[in-house]
Structures are given as structure tokens and as C-alpha cells.
């Protein structure tokens, strides 16, 4: 009897273990099946580099270049804001802050990750957008910058906690060696710890980017969703994710609009797959290097 229970539990754990892989494969299969159907009627290049997104016109135009650039602008903006802030706060938490403050800061940053993105979007539309409109004297505050700022907040927890981990895993002997040679604390941080933790920092940045590229709700609410080719971060943009979210309801299953949205899904999948791959590469490199030393 016990043997049977053992066996069943073993199998349950096995299923849970391979479950995630099975589901990823199923999702990928479904995405490819629905998305690739578009390319029987639309040229791949016209899809990727077309500049007009008019999916419900007659005849429809499926050019996603404005959407790709929209996602790119928002992401770049978020990275420019979140990375320096993230490195700074990780350094402060890991190296400078006294013990009790460290705990408070760490839980504060974790709490930031717990705020639902729709709440951030709502705050953005009610306070950030009017604020940006007044400062930059814009026609409307619903711009790529508004999205970038909100997404920077969302990426911060990921970035800070991974960078902090990699700073903590820098061997103590480095720090002591540097200080013993007469370097100041800042020189030690700047010349020794940051370079030693660089793989982790790069991985953190990549994972932060992954978080930003995939984010939907907040950008849908505060970036204005105009499918123009953006030339400045102070213009409204339409991102890949927001397009899927906003239009999936309308698309009748089996129409070319529906297939086009799945094709956008493939593009997103490829982007986040590459980002994760690069992040993994840096994380592993960092681990190996530290092990060698």
C-alpha cells in the first residue's frame, strides 16, 4: 500500500516537473499554428516593416513597424530610468545601508513588485500624464515617456534584487583586499565590486527589459496607443502588447486580423526568448567566473 502511495506521489511530482515545459511547448505550438496562418495572405516583410496598422479597414493593412518601435521607445526609456536607479539602490542596500535600514529597504522594494500594473496605470493616467503635459507643454501627457516612467517602477524590483544578489556574491576577499591597499569605500565599489558583479548586473538589466517588453495593462492605459512612427519619447506610441490586448476582443477567430494578432504574439515570444537567453548567458558566466576564483 505504502509503495503505491509513494509511486503516485512520485508521478505527481514528475507531472508538475515536466508540466511547465509541456505547457510552454503547447503554447508555442498554438501560437505558431495561429500566427503563421497570416503569412499565406500577407508578406512577412510587409508585416514586419510596414508602417501602417489599419487592421479593420478594407483592405486591411498589417504593418507592425510602428508597434515594434513603440515597444522599443517605451523599453529604452524605462531602461534609461530604471538601470541607474536600480544599480544605485542595489549598491546602497548591499554595501552602504546599516542592517536595520537594509531590511526595511528590501521589503519596500519587494512591495513595489506587488503593486498590480493596472493600479500603476491608473495612477499614471490621473497624475503622471497631466504632470508631464504641464512640464513639457505637450498637447497630451499620454506619451511613451509616461509609459517608460511607470514601467521603470515595475522593472526596479527585478533589477535591484538581482544586482543585490550578485553584489553579495562578490567574494569578501576582494573587498578586504581593496580596502587593505588603501582604496576608499567609493573606489572599492566603483573599481572592484561593480566590475566583479558586472555579469549579474547585465543579467538584471536583461530580465528588467524582459519585464518591460511584456508589460501590457499600464502601457495600454498611459501611452496613448496611436500607431505612428515615433520620433521622440514625448509622442504617443502604440506597443505590441497593448495592440493585442486592445484588439483581441474585436478579432473574429479565423479572420486575418486574428491571425495578425497571433503573429504579433510570435514576435513578442521571439523577443522575450532572446532576452531570456542573453540574461541566462550572463548569469551563468557570472557564476562560473566566481566559482573559478
Amino acid at each position: 500500500m505504502n509503495k503505491w502511495i509513494e509511486k503516485i506521489i512520485e508521478k505527481l511530482i514528475f507531472i508538475s516537473g515536466i508540466g511547465s515545459i509541456v505547457f510552454v511547448l503547447l503554447i508555442l505550438f498554438f501560437l505558431l499554428k495561429e500566427g503563421l496562418a497570416l503569412f499565406s495572405s500577407v508578406n512577412v516583410f510587409a508585416f514586419l516593416f510596414g508602417t501602417n496598422w489599419y487592421p479593420i479597414s478594407e483592405p486591411p493593412q498589417f504593418g507592425i513597424l510602428p508597434l515594434i518601435l513603440g515597444s522599443l521607445w517605451v523599453t529604452l526609456g524605462a531602461v534609461v530610468i530604471a538601470v541607474p536607479l536600480g544599480i544605485g539602490s542595489a549598491l546602497y542596500v548591499a554595501e552602504v545601508a546599516p542592517g536595520w535600514l537594509k531590511e526595511v529597504l528590501k521589503s519596500g522594494i519587494e512591495l513595489l513588485a506587488a503593486i498590480p500594473s493596472i493600479v500603476l496605470g491608473f495612477i499614471g493616467i490621473a497624475t503622471l500624464a497631466p504632470f508631464l503635459k504641464n512640464i513639457f507643454n505637450l498637447p497630451s501627457g499620454l506619451t511613451a515617456l509616461a509609459g517608460s516612467i511607470m514601467l521603470a517602477f515595475m522593472a526596479m524590483p527585478t533589477i535591484v534584487s538581482i544586482i543585490e544578489d550578485s553584489i553579495n556574491s562578490v567574494p569578501k576577499s576582494y573587498r578586504e583586499g581593496s580596502l587593505a591597499l588603501g582604496a576608499t569605500r567609493w573606489q572599492t565599489i566603483y573599481r572592484v565590486i561593480l566590475p566583479a558583479a558586472s555579469s549579474g548586473i547585465l543579467a538584471a538589466i536583461m530580465l528588467g527589459i524582459g519585464r518591460v517588453v511584456g508589460e501590457t495593462m499600464a502601457v495600454l492605459m498611459i501611452t496613448g496607443n496611436a500607431a505612428i512612427l515615433p520620433t521622440s519619447i514625448l509622442q504617443p506610441v502604440r506597443t505590441l502588447t497593448a495592440t493585442i490586448a486592445a484588439e483581441m476582443g474585436e478579432a473574429v477567430s479565423g479572420s486575418s486580423h486574428y491571425y495578425a494578432l497571433f503573429a504579433i504574439g510570435i514576435v513578442l515570444f521571439v523577443i522575450s526568448f532572446l532576452i531570456n537567453l542573453v540574461a541566462d548567458f550572463f548569469l551563468n558566466r557570472g557564476k562560473k567566473r566566481n566559482r573559478k576564483r
Binding site: N52, Y54, L142, M221, N225, A226, A227, P236, R238, A246
Partner: peptide, 14 residues
Amino acid sequence: EFAAEVLMMPSSQA
């Protein structure tokens, strides 16, 4: 067609 510059809002409330 709607100009590309027109802002697309996710709801009437927005």
C-alpha cells in the same frame, strides 16, 4: 480612416 495620430483610449472612462 482615423489618422494615426489619434489617441486610442481603452475605455469611455479614459
